[in-house]
Nucleic acid binder design. Structure first.
Lengths: 336, 336
DNA sequence: CGATCTAATTTGAACGATCAAACTCTGGGA
DNA sequence: TCCCAGAGTTTGATCGTTCAAATTAGATCG
C-alpha cells in the first residue's frame, strides 16, 4: 500500500507553498512558467494526484454526473442506452468529470435517490432518459435546481424555442425519411410503415418521416400503416395477417423489435428477402442482415456533456436559452 | 436551491453536540434511546444528509466501487455485462455503496485509470472482468493493494484451494451439461458442439460439460465438435459446410453468436427447427426462439458484493482465503 | 530615490464530517 | 462519606484541499 502523497509533500519538495502547487494544477496562468515546470516535475516524480474528497469538500462541487442504469427490461431497447452510457463515460472522462451510477425502479424512487445524492454532494448534475408527458421528475429537478439534461425531448411544449430544460435527442423523422427514400429507390413504390399506436412522441416522430416522404412521391394509398404495441411476437403475428391482405414492396419499422417480427413473418410466408428497415441498429438486426437506422449514441452523449458543461468545462446550472438548449442528432441509415 | 444542512444545524436544534448526532447515525448503540429519537426527529425535520465529501475525507474511505464500462468487454458479451453492472448497482446501493464508472480501451489504460482513482481516493475497490492468462491487471492490483473481485476465474492456477484473488464466475460446464442432457432427452443421441479453438478457459470449460455428458451416455462418435473463432457469419459458414457431412440431432453452442450462426445455416438448409442451445440468453436468441443457458448476472453481482465487503458491510482488503475466496454461480437453462 | 503599480507568492481560515481523548453524571460498594 | 466503574456526552484536533486576503518581489515612472 503506497503512502498517500499530499499537496504539502509536493510543496515542501519543490520549495514553494501549498497554494502555488494548487495554482499550478488549477490555474497555471497565474504562475510563473519556470515555477510551473519545477512544480510539475515534482508532481510527476512523486506521482501526486489531488485528493478529490478534500477538493470536493472545499469547492463544493463533485464534478460528477449521476446516471440511472435501467433495469434490464428484456428485449432489445437496452442496447442504445448502454452505448449511450458508455459514450457518456468516455466523454466525461475526457473533461475530468466522473459518472456515478444509481438504480431506481420508479420515478418516485429516482427522485428519492437524487435527493440523497444532491444533499450529500455526490453529484452536480444528472442525465435522465425516457421522459414522458407530465413526468414528475423534470419538475422536481427544476425546482430543486439540480442541473440536468434529458435524452429525449420534452414532448408537448415547444421544444426548440421555449424549452423547459436542456435536452438531446435523435431526429427520428430524419431517420425514417432516409429509410423510406432508400426503399423507394431500391425496392418499389409500395413502402409500408409498422409503428406503435399514436400518442408516443417518439413513435409519431418516426412515423412522420415516413409519411412525409411517401406523400412527396406518390399518392401513397398503396402504402399501409400498421401499429402494434411492442414485441417481436406481436409484430410477427400482425404482419403475417396483414401481408395476406396488402401487397407491399418494403417496410419501414419504428424499432428493431418490430423489424425482427416483420422479418420472421415475411420469411414464414416465403419472402425472406422483403426489404425491411429497423430502428436502433441492434445486434439482432445485424445478425439477421436487416438494414436499420443507427441512433449514434456516441454523438448524443457528446452533445449531452457539451450542454451540461459551461465554457470552462465545469458543470454549471445553465438556463434553457431558447434555441440553444438542445441538440438534435442526425441518425444514420445502415444498409445491409 | 436548498441551503445545505450541516451536522451542526442538527446538533444545535436538538440541543446536543456534533458528535452525538454523528453517533446517532453511525453508532446508534452508544447513544441513549431517548436522545436517539430526539435527534432522529430533527434529522428528518431538517432533511439532513451527511456531506459525503467531508465524511470521505475524514474516514479515508469512499465507499465506492469502480467498474469499467466497455462496449467491447473481452470474454463476456455485452448484455451479460450490462445486466451484471445494473445488478451490481442495485446491490451496492442496498449496502450504501456507490458505483463509479470509468472507461478504458486497453489494460494499460485501465491501470492508469485505477492509479488516478486510487490516489484521488475515488474508489475503495474495483470489479474487473474479462481477465486472461498473464493479465497484467491482477498483478498491479495485488501489488498496490487495491481490493478487487474479478468476474471470471483466474484460469491456470488452482482457483479454488489456492486462489490468487477473489473471484466470481458462472459454472460453464454445468450449463452445457444441462443443455446437453436436455437435448439428449428431447432430440436424439447425436448432439454436437460448436465452440472456440482450444485454449480459452471459458470455452474449454463449456466444452467439458458437453463432452462429459456425451461420454456418459453413448459412445459419442456421432457427436462432432466444431470450432470457429467467433462471429455469426463465420459460424454460419462453417455449420453450412459441416452439416452436409455430419448428420446431427441437435447442437450445443459456446455462445449465442455461434448459436445464431448455426441456426441461420440450418434454416438455409431447410432445417429451421434443428434444436440449438446457445449461451448467455441474449435478446437475439430470444427473438429467434432458441434455447440458451442463462448466466444469471444478478446472482453473480450479489456474490461479488458479498465477497468484497467484510462482515460490517464495508469494503475491506480481504485476503484470498483458500476455499472462501470465490463464488461459482449455477447457470440456468432457458428452454424455448 | 521614493512612490506606485502589477505580478507572483504566501498565509490563515474555512469546508463538514469523524477520531480520540476528556469530561460529566449516576449508582453501587467499601 | 468517599471512591470507582461505566454509560453517555462533549471537546479539540484533524483529514487535504481551495478561497480570500495579505505579503513580497520586481518593474515603471516622475
Amino acid at each position: 500500500m503506497t503512502e498517500a502523497v499530499t499537496i504539502d509533500d509536493v510543496a515542501r519538495r519543490a520549495g514553494v507553498s501549498r497554494q502555488t502547487v494548487s495554482n499550478v494544477l488549477n490555474a497555471p496562468q497565474v504562475v510563473r512558467e519556470s515555477t510551473r515546470q519545477r512544480v510539475m516535475q515534482v508532481v510527476e516524480q512523486l506521482g501526486y494526484s489531488p485528493n478529490s474528497s478534500a477538493r470536493r469538500l472545499r469547492t463544493r462541487r463533485s464534478s460528477t454526473i449521476g446516471v440511472r442504469l435501467d433495469a434490464y427490461a428484456g428485449g432489445i431497447s437496452g442496447v442504445v442506452l448502454d452505448r449511450f452510457v458508455h459514450a457518456l463515460t468516455e466523454r466525461a472522462g475526457a473533461r475530468r468529470l466522473r459518472v456515478l451510477l444509481y438504480a431506481a425502479r420508479t420515478p418516485e424512487d429516482e427522485i428519492a435517490r437524487w435527493d440523497e445524492l444532491m444533499r450529500g454532494g455526490d453529484v452536480d448534475a444528472v442525465v435522465i432518459s425516457g421522459t414522458f408527458h407530465g413526468d414528475p421528475r423534470t419538475g422536481w429537478l427544476l425546482e430543486r435546481g439540480l442541473p440536468f439534461v434529458s435524452f429525449g425531448r420534452p414532448w408537448g411544449a415547444d421544444d426548440i424555442d421555449d424549452p423547459a430544460h436542456l435536452w438531446v435527442d435523435v431526429d427520428g423523422a430524419a431517420g425514417t425519411r432516409a429509410a423510406t427514400t432508400h426503399l423507394l429507390e431500391t425496392a418499389g413504390p409500395r413502402v409500408g410503415f409498422l409503428g406503435w399506436p399514436k400518442g408516443s412522441g417518439t413513435g409519431d416522430d418516426r412515423e412522420r418521416g415516413w409519411r412525409e416522404t411517401i406523400g412527396e412521391r406518390a399518392g401513397g394509398e398503396s402504402a399501409p400503416r400498421w401499429a402494434v404495441r411492442e414485441g417481436i411476437a406481436e409484430a410477427r403475428e400482425l404482419v403475417t395477417r396483414e401481408l395476406a391482405r396488402h401487397e407491399i414492396d418494403a417496410l419501414v419499422c419504428a424499432s428493431d423489435s418490430l423489424a425482427v417480427g416483420a422479418h420472421l413473418a415475411a420469411a414464414d410466408l416465403g419472402r425472406p428477402h422483403l426489404p425491411i428497415v429497423g430502428f436502433d441498429n441492434t445486434p439482432v438486426v445485424e445478425a439477421l442482415g436487416l438494414s436499420s437506422v443507427e441512433q449514434r449514441p456516441e454523438h448524443v452523449a457528446a452533445a449531452a456533456i457539451d450542454l451540461i458543461t459551461g465554457p470552462g468545462g465545469a458543470i454549471e446550472a445553465r438556463a434553457a436559452t431558447p434555441g440553444a438548449a438542445h441538440a438534435l442528432i442526425m441518425p444514420r441509415l445502415i444498409v445491409r
